[in-house]
Amino acid sequence: MGIFYGFVAVVALVLLVIFGVGALGLDTLFAVVIPYAAIALFLIGFAYRVFKWAKSPVPYKITTTCGQQKSLPWIKNNKLDCPHSTWAVIGRMALEVLFFRSLFRNTKSELKSGPKLVHGDEKYLWLGALAFHWSFLIVFARHYRFFTNWECSVMTLVNNLDSFFQIGLPMLYMTDLILVGAVTFLFLRRVLSPQLRYISLAADYFPLFLIFGIAASGILMRYFMRVDIVEIKNLAMGLVGFNPAVPEGLGIIFYIHLFLVSVLFAYFPFSKLMHMPGVFMSPTRNMANDNRARRHINPQNPEVKIHTYEEYEDEFRDVMKASGLPLDKEE
């Protein structure tokens, strides 16, 4: 059912733009108001959820460890898999964020005929996720050219490598193909595996369809349905300069692309996509495993009322004195 809701939602969004811009002519709404609202919602919602996480107490040090802990000097410590210092945590976190190390460890168990339970590696998710996230990042960063006149030499180099094969004009970017391929793989993975299909919800399918829609409309716009890039940059520069003017005749495909991106931004803080800041906030990853060296104080510890012997003596001094008990302090 989830797959159906996700698909219908994205189709409805596309139809909404076609109706809104094509039939009703709501250019300003879709080109200015909705993008502004989406970005505002994104930034505020993002910060709100991060602050909410930051306020949650972490009662125990719950680092997940996959290697030998630092202990006696003659036992070799696995720094990255069982980090003991902040630098080791940063190293592990960097590998996790940039190369998805925990997905690389993914295993699967299958029941083969016999019946025999077989355990094995499963690297496809890691590979698909890596291809998806990196190509999305490159495609995203490339869009900065519409919002500023800053020429970034790193981006120029990336773009030159990306269009290495010089196919067509404008030249084909490999990341465009990889992005669509990877998002299709991540979708098919959920559909084709019965176990995954069972646990997949509309909230899993919707972002996949949405991102597929964004990539598809972007590719259509870049390679097939021509739009006036200069006018689009004029609009984008106006938006970031808070002085937007909507050019005429931008083409419906541009509005579809922009609206789907706006929806992605607006939806982001409410969704599983918050794993982006979440990976930095997960206590199982961002804490050093130094339980035995440093005490972790549970912030939820209740305030315990204590009554010291000194106070006890003060309270019962007279009675104790009268019955001849020894006292630490006579007066």
């Binding site: 994104f42 930034l43 993002f46 910060a47 991060v50 602050f51 930051a54 900065y144 919002f147 500023t148 006149n149 800053w150 004029n234 520069m237 106006g238 970031v240 300069g241 808070f242 002085n243 800041p277 930095f280 906030m281």
Partner: peptide, 28 residues
Amino acid sequence: IIIGLLVFVLAATFPIWYNAATGQSDEY
């Protein structure tokens, strides 16, 4: 966390403050 969040917001809004700081006019 505040430093991290600040870096993220600055990167996300890069065109806004960069264009304002370098005086790039959106009139061009």
